[in-house]
């Protein structure tokens, strides 16, 4: 059995309390949400926090998924399974359901949280790609108050985010705009495995034209999990095989995959293009009201 190094344990009773504990205990204190990334790292002693602040008591406060004005608002403590089970999510952003179906397995999805996923900032983390494609924003709170950043700006590198030592992510806001279609495509070595590569596509159609697009890429070293080049190719175009191919080519060209045991970079780059094309086809079909 792998066992963690000694650590102190605190339970946060509110968001303010959690932030207060973070400030009080200093940078060697860490939040733990679902624990599905952090606890394995502790057991492998890759992470040796002095204190762990359990935010599971905040599940009621931060675990909701709702519509607020023209935004879908997802609490940081919503579990993967909550997202997967939410009809309102499925109605507006099927890309999130597509992604959730291929994130880990039911056991992990029952506990793992949306906030934990984004803050873990694993380069192969699926929701970062999906939410970036949707132009979502992250709501971050500290003792000084609340700020929002685009999910695309959240990650500063592998396992690094702009969330400060004494801050926490509280919500994700996804703007709801008309004519949206979205989809997710992932290739994994086995069910429950992290992506070899994955692509999220979102399009907003206006009178037969793609008025806006989001292309998220996962596990292929795309800067900020997105391909802005592919998005630029799509914007203002009527969907066609050629446009999709050009966007896919841009996605493949702009990413920067590394070779590892999941596959050579050349293969991952191929997948970035192939999966972008597949996701786009389904996203466009969905935007056009077809079942896909």
């Amino acid at each position: 059995m792998q066992v963690p190094a000694p650590f102190g344990y605190e339970r946060a009773t509110s968001v303010d309390h959690a932030i207060q504990l973070l400030e009080q205990l200093g940078p060697e204190a860490r939040l733990v949400a679902g624990g599905h990334s952090f606890i394995p790292m502790m057991k492998l002693r890759l992470a040796q926090p002095e204190h762990v602040i359990d935010i599971n008591p905040l599940a009621a406060e931060l675990g909701t998924i709702s519509i607020d004005g023209s935004d879908l608002v997802i609490g940081a403590m919503a579990r993967h399974n909550d997202l997967l089970g939410s009809a309102v999510v499925g109605e507006h952003f099927p890309v999130l359901h597509d992604a959730e179906r291929v994130i880990a397995d039911p056991v992990v999805r029952n506990r793992g949280t949306i906030g934990g996923s984004l803050c873990q900032a694993d380069p192969a983390e699926d929701l970062s790609a999906a939410l970036s494609a949707l132009h979502a924003t992250a709501v971050i709170r500290g003792s000084g108050g609340t700020r929002t950043v685009a999910v695309r700006e959240l990650h500063t590198g592998p396992y690094e985010t702009v969330v400060g030592d004494a801050e926490m992510l509280t919500h994700i806001r996804v703007p709801i705009r008309n004519g949206c279609g979205s989809a997710y495509e992932k290739v994994e070595r086995r069910v429950g495995d992290w992506a070899i590569a994955a692509a999220a596509a979102a399009v907003w159609m206006d009178g037969g034209i793609i008025s806006d697009a989001g292309i998220g890429l996962c596990a292929v070293g795309a800067e900020h999990f997105v391909s802005t080049d592919a998005e630029a190719v799509l914007r203002g175009q009527a969907p066609s095989d050629d446009v999709i191919a050009a966007a896919a080519a841009a996605a493949a060209a702009g990413c920067n995959p590394t070779t590892d045991q999941r596959g050579p970079a050349e293969y991952k780059r191929h997948l970035a293009g192939e999966l972008t094309a597949r996701a786009l086809r389904r996203a466009i079909a969905r935007a056009q009201g077809a079942a896909a």
């Binding site: 290739v187 070779t259 590892d260 045991q261 596959g263 293969y267």
Partner: peptide
């Protein structure tokens, strides 16, 4: 999947060693 795709390119990989570029 990587090995199958590389095989389709006519270049199957050695699987006992780390994959390299």
């Amino acid at each position: 999947p990587a090995q199958v795709w590389m095989t389709m390119q006519g270049r199957p990989l050695r699987t006992d060693l780390a994959f390299t570029d």
